[in-house]
Simulated assay, not measured.
Amino acid sequence: MQMLVSRDSLLEAGVRSANCQAVVCITNNEEVNLKISAIVRLLNPKTRIITMSKVDDFEETLSTLGGEVHIVDPFKTFARVLNASINNTAFYALNNWLVGDKCATLDSYVQPPLGGWIICGYGRMGLEANRVLTKNGVKTAVIDPHSRRKEEEIDTYVIGHVNAKTLSQAGIHEAVGLLAADADDGHNLGTLLNARCLNSNLFTIVRQNSHENEVAFSEANADMIMQPTLVTARKILLLLIAPLLKPFFRYLLAKKSGREEILKNLLVLLREKIGNQKPCLVTIDFNSEKSSAVIQALDEGEEVLLGHIISDPRNRDVELDLAPFVIKSCGKEIVLPAKDYKILEGDQLLFCGTSTSKYLLKSSINSEYTLYYLRTGQYKPMGYFMQWYERRFSKA
């Protein structure tokens, strides 16, 4: 059944509404996603568009639509994660922990070995993985039933299905790693079993296409499992609830002096603040609707510092269990902002903390009495009589 998307249906869904924050296009048809994205941009030039695309030509077109467009490609996302696991194990651990990967901790370091790798299945996932591996100086061998793409850097290309013979031709006995990247789960599981019979010391990465096969893949004991639908869902969720995570990651991965030390210190802070609890990524908008007490204080000419709002309302000398990641102010991103940062109306804050700290902070920025205590260390009089009493006798 073909999905019908029209201007009228998008208008009926509220694409021009002031409350429309984003439009997510995740159909299985690349052309439909492109069509929806183009119509949305014409109807609402300001709204965010999050769309799934795995075709380079479509991605180029989407990137020219203008405005804020996020293209979600699960295979390119996986490639970035693979590259991080090779070059920056601490970032790999942080990324998996933040996205809620199963059993992930801030100490879950996984580093694929450098040496000969075999890629079984040369579709989009195999292609993106090969680019990352060759970029890191790894020699690759590919097993695929289709002819070789001449433009790709591949040391050995074996045409055929995966079996003991083709694995041997690809150099399975000398290989250090294997990627099972077929679009069929049965083939991928069979590839793992065949490969391990010939080389039990392999580092293995496997593609899981269907969530229904979760039990089988869990028993396969692969070092890394890539599930395209899960990667897509997590990426979209983070773009919706934590759009500032993208510049935060870009900052941490920048090859600049001192960044590794900054990441190391950040992990220490997160272990101290959150520990074994589930991390909550929260975006705060400083406006009258979502942080009324802060805006009221600013309107009255008072300063509100970041250090004020991240203090515990039960005891202002203690900080909440959270870590500020990014503040976006006047179009600029400030990564890991200092506590003396002066909050402005229109700012946006991304922090990571516990669920308790999330609710306490939201309460503080919407209560003039709590915020007054956090700013001054004193309690603001409540009620008409106490306010009169304060005015009357404070002058005496």
Rank of each mutant, 00 (worst) to 15 (best):
T51H: 03
M52R: 14
M52G: 01
M52P: 00
M52C: 00
M52L: 10
M52A: 03
M52E: 09
M52Q: 10
S53Y: 13
S53P: 13
S53M: 13
K54W: 00
V55T: 08
D56T: 09
D56E: 14
D56G: 04
D56Q: 10
D56M: 12
D56V: 08
D56R: 14
D57S: 14
D57L: 09
F58S: 15
F58V: 06
F58A: 14
F58M: 13
F58W: 09
E59P: 01
E60S: 13
E60R: 15
E60W: 06
E60F: 09
T61S: 10
L62V: 06
L62D: 06
L62C: 07
L62R: 05
S63E: 05
S63T: 05
S63F: 09
L65E: 08
L65G: 03
G66L: 15
G66Q: 13
G66V: 11
G66R: 12
G66E: 15
G67K: 04
G67D: 00
E68W: 00
E68G: 02
E68M: 10
V69F: 13
V69K: 11
V69N: 13
H70C: 13
H70T: 14
H70V: 14
H70L: 12
I71H: 02
I71S: 03
I71E: 11
I71W: 04
I71Q: 09
V72R: 04
V72H: 08
D73Y: 01
D73R: 00
P74A: 07
P74F: 06
P74K: 05
P74W: 06
F75Y: 12
F75V: 03
F75I: 01
F75A: 07
F75H: 13
F75M: 02
F75D: 03
K76W: 05
K76T: 07
T77P: 08
T77S: 14
A79T: 01
A79W: 00
A79P: 08
A79L: 02
R80E: 10
R80M: 04
R80K: 11
V81K: 12
V81H: 10
V81A: 11
V81G: 11
L82W: 05
L82R: 04
N83P: 00
N83V: 02
N83Y: 00
N83W: 01
A84E: 10
A84S: 15
A84K: 12
A84Q: 08
